[in-house]
Amino acid sequence: MAVASTPLITVIVPIYNVENYLKKCLNSIINQQYKKLEILLIDDGSTDLSGKIADEYAVKDNRIKVVHKENGGLSDARNYGLKIMTGEYVTFIDSDDYVTEDYISYMYGLLEKTNFKASLALCSLINVYSSTDRLQDNGNQTEVVLSGKKCIEMMCYHDLVDTCAYAKLGKRELYANDFFPKGKLFEDIGSTYKLFLQCDKVACGFKGKYYYVIRPNSIVTSGFSSKKLELLAMTDQMAQAVVTTYPDLQKAVLRRQVYARFSTLNQTLHSENARQDQQMLINYIRKNKKAFLQDSKAPRRDKLAYRLLQLGLPFYRFAWLTYEKRKGE
C-alpha cells in the first residue's frame, strides 16, 4: 500500500494502570501493515509504570505522541485524543487489548471497496480469556455494506454488530462534540449508536481482527456497585434517541433494554447487598417479557435466561455462576 496515496489515520489509546498489558498492545499497533499512522497514547493519570512504558515507545517510534493528564476516566481520555488528533480517520484501541497486523488495513480496505461512500467500517472481536488464554472468535468471514439503521438493529439483538468504541474505523467528523459521555461506565452503549445514526452506509467486515482481553479486574468482571446501574441509563438513552429517528426499531431497542437488566442482574449475583436492585431489575424483565419471548429475532439465550429466572433467583444464580465459570475455562 503506497503511503503517499493513503490518508493519515489516528489511533487513540487511552491508558490507565495496564503495565502488564501495554507492551503487547503497543507492539501490535506499531507493527501494523498500514504505516501512515498518528498514534496518540493518552496516559490518564496512571500510578504504575504505564506512563513510563508509553514514553519509551515514543522514543522508538516518531509516530507516537504521549499525553500525560490527570485521571478523568476512559471517556475523558478518548475525548482528549479526539481534540488533538490530526488524522482523517480515527480508530480506538484499549490499552489492555491488542490487534492483528492488518487491523487497520482491513477496515480501510472495506471503506475503499465502497469508493469511500461509507464513512465508517467495523470488524469483529476475538475474546481472550486472560486466565487461560483461550480464544473465542465472535465473527465470521462475511463482508457486507449495511445501512446505519440495520447496524443499530443488529446491535440491539447482539447480531455480529458490537457496541464497542474499538474495532471501528471512522471519519473524524463522526466523533464531534465530546463524543463519549464523561464519567460514565458502559459509555460505549451511550455513544456508538450515534455513529450509526450519522451513517447511510457502514462497511462491515465480520472477521475477527481485534483481541478483546477479558481480565478479572476489568469494569465488566469486577464486583457490583451502584455505578453499574449506569448501564441502564446509557441503554435507555440510546433507546429513546433511536426510536425518535426510527420508530419501527421500537421492538429491537426494547429487547436491548431488557438485556441490559439481565446483564446488570448478573453483576449483582456476586454481591450480598443488592436485593433491592435485584428486585427492581426482575420486575422490569417480567413486565417486558414479551420483548424477547415473542420476538423471533431475540437470541435464544434471552428465553432460556427468563425460564431459569422463573425457577427462582437462587436457581438462576447457580446456573449463571456455573456458566460464567465454564466460559472462562
Rank of each mutant, 00 (worst) to 15 (best):
Q198I: 03
S130A: 15
Y34A: 04
K209T: 14
N288G: 06
L308T: 03
Q276H: 06
Q276A: 09
N217G: 04
T47Q: 07
Q257H: 05
G72Q: 02
R326G: 01
L37P: 09
K171V: 12
N177H: 14
N71A: 02
R255E: 11
L249F: 12
G208I: 04
R317H: 03
Y57K: 06
I42A: 00
I189T: 11
T163S: 13
S124W: 01
C25T: 13
D94G: 07
G51C: 02
S222N: 15
L49E: 09
V144D: 15
L41D: 01
R326K: 13
N127R: 14
L293W: 03
K23V: 13
V128W: 12
E173P: 00
G205A: 08
V258D: 05
S50V: 02
G183I: 08
C123Y: 02
L22G: 00
Q136T: 13
F315E: 03
Y57G: 12
T100R: 11
A118L: 13
D61A: 10
S147M: 10
D76K: 08
I93P: 04
F116I: 05
I30Q: 08
Q276R: 09
N27L: 12
R301H: 01
T91W: 04
I84K: 11
V220R: 09
C123W: 02
K24L: 09
H270A: 01
L135I: 08
L169Q: 14
M238W: 10
A298T: 05
N138Q: 14
V13H: 00
G109S: 11
E324R: 10
T244H: 13
S119P: 03
I219F: 09
Y166H: 10
Y212W: 15
T192G: 02
D48S: 07
V128Q: 10
N71K: 01
L22W: 02
S263P: 00
A298F: 03
A274E: 03
D102R: 03
F186S: 06
I42D: 00
C164F: 15
K23N: 15
L111H: 10
L229I: 11
N62P: 10
V3Y: 01
Y16V: 13
A252K: 03
F116C: 08
F318N: 07
A241S: 13
S5H: 07
G87H: 01
K150A: 14
A298E: 02
E38G: 06
Q278A: 07
L110R: 15
N27F: 05
I15V: 14
T192K: 03
S225K: 09
H158I: 02
T114L: 10
N138Y: 08
L122I: 08
Y212D: 14
Y129S: 05
D94F: 06
A305G: 01
L281A: 04
V144P: 09
E56T: 10
E38D: 13
E187Q: 14
H158M: 09
G148I: 01
D43N: 15
C151T: 04
P7I: 02
